[in-house]
Lab assay of single mutants.
Amino acid sequence: CHSECLGNCSQPDDPTKCVACRNFYLDGRCVETCPPPYYHFQDWRCVNFSFCQDLHHKCKNSRRQGCHQYVIHNNKCIPECPSGYTMNSSNLLCTPCLGPCPKVCHLLEGEKTIDSVTSAQELRGCTVINGSLIINIRGGNNLAAELEANLGLIEEISGYLKIRRSYALVSLSFFRKLRLIRGETLEIGNYSFYALDNQNLRQLWDWSKHNLTITQGKLFFHYNPKLCLSEIHKMEEVSGTKGRQERNDIALKTNGDQASCENELLKFSYIRTSFDKILLRWEPYWPPDFRDLLGFMLFYKEAPYQNVTEFDGQDACGSNSWTVVDIDPPLRSNDPKSQNHPGWLMRGLKPWTQYAIFVKTLVTFSDERRTYGAKSDIIYVQTDATNPSVPLDPISVSNSSSQIILKWKPPSDPNGNITHYLVFWERQAEDSELFELDYCLKGLKLPSRTWSPPFESEDSQKHNQSEYEDSAGECCSCPKTDSQILKELEESSFRKTFEDYLHNVVFVPRKT
């Protein structure tokens, strides 16, 4: 048989008469490798580009789960590009990614509803959504962080984005990388972005840091009482949809009607710091009717980097990364020049730590249904340095008659930039024990000054392991946590139920 035959053949030295091919099969003959313009397919066939392209389009058009959109890589027609490569849609070739590779997620039936953290986790790592997304989240724990972890990498949506009755959302900033909504599939009414009845939605994105392009379709905003109209108009300008909307697409009466839409800028007039305090004062603000001013709200939190936005980490279910302080308005003076500047002394802060701070007014709604208010920009203030805590785990070892090696770990709280350490030492008198000992005694162990690591005695271990207080009263049991108490109650309830079950099964009433 021919060298490319495997198993047997019907005619000697003829690659077209093989029972099976050793390498690849091409047009009725066995070959060692697939010549151009053919590609290896499933490690035994040679196919042309049209064959591989037909497989790709067949799966793409069917949208069946589990099928493969075949691509070409290293002269092979394979189910998908290997790690580190992405497909070129024009020629199906796998090309190296520039940075992290995109991950295209194809949605069944063309859309997916995100109504819980669990459903959001199914899209973790996706960068391109081939379909439409509907966000409908009523509640949950730590929602802002969970949504950002699972949806934060999405850069492109081919269909539309719909935010509907998501009472738990305060902001859409968890879509931190969303840059493009194509609108290839539109919501009824030709809408590519749809926001309806979101009672706590206050911000779409921080438009000073976020760009969003909507290729096709219109915007729809109705019944978002805490979303200011200025935020919607800003989205029109940034996304390129200005002029597409009709009169009733953006409701003037049901958007922002319960919001404090600040239209003035508060400026800080005085800032002073110490290692654990920050004193702030800002310019006074009074609405047209000074009785509408209820006070100020001061927001602050630790910020290692200057990239904080107002609604980071917030949701309507209680999660809030900001510390909020309510401040009463100052006494009002008739003389504008003698107006008191409101302020606040922030206490209990960490030394040498940068804080993000902003302040906003708290006002009631005027009778004319106009909203007044003022808010400052987010500023960054760093507390002063102070003395560091003591170095940890000092170790001293003498390696000769004239040297001592000293080692330690950095302090747990540096409280500033540590530039150097101060080492103090003092000579001590020799131990009298060394002169009084009889060095001729056998088995004498000389006193040693070398360091030995501390260890816990058996008594201390027994005390720590004991669940009861000892007789001397030195140790006591740790208080039980809520989960331990709940577990004990469940076990007790189970024992009672099981005992009742045994009584009912074992003891049967005697027939009379």
Rank of each mutant, 00 (worst) to 15 (best):
K242F: 12
M235F: 08
R247M: 11
R244Q: 07
P342G: 12
D328N: 11
R164T: 15
I135R: 11
E156Y: 04
R370D: 04
Y194T: 11
A316N: 13
P351H: 06
G243T: 13
Y300Q: 15
E237G: 10
Q199P: 05
E246G: 14
T241N: 12
D335P: 12
N248E: 15
E187M: 07
I357F: 15
E146M: 05
V363E: 05
S338K: 15
S376L: 01
D206P: 08
L151T: 02
L252W: 12
W352Q: 04
L252R: 12
K242L: 09
F296V: 13
L345H: 15
D115F: 05
V128M: 02
F220R: 04
L107K: 03
S239Y: 08
E264K: 04
D326G: 03
E237R: 02
I214H: 06
N307A: 07
P394G: 03
S402I: 05
L406P: 02
S321D: 04
T386Y: 08
L204V: 09
S119L: 06
R176Q: 14
Q216S: 10
D292H: 03
Y305Q: 14
S158C: 14
A144G: 06
M346Y: 03
R179H: 14
Q339K: 12
V117A: 08
S158K: 12
K234N: 08
P304V: 04
S132N: 08
Y167K: 13
T386G: 04
F220D: 03
Y305H: 12
G125I: 13
I135F: 11
T353S: 09
W408S: 10
P391R: 01
S274T: 09
T353N: 08
R369N: 13
S119E: 07
Y285E: 02
W207C: 07
D312T: 10
S274Y: 11
D377M: 13
E368T: 11
L147Q: 01
M346Q: 05
L147V: 02
S239D: 04
P388N: 00
N136W: 10
V128G: 14
T371C: 02
D335S: 07
K103W: 15
L107V: 10
P411D: 00
G243K: 10
G131F: 03
I129W: 06
G159K: 02
L133I: 04
L186M: 10
P342I: 15
F174T: 04
S400E: 15
W408P: 15
S171A: 06
K301I: 08
N224M: 10
R291L: 02
G110K: 13
Y223P: 00
I278S: 03
A259Y: 02
I157D: 00
L172I: 15
S171V: 05
Y300D: 00
T215I: 15
T323P: 04
E302R: 15
P336K: 05
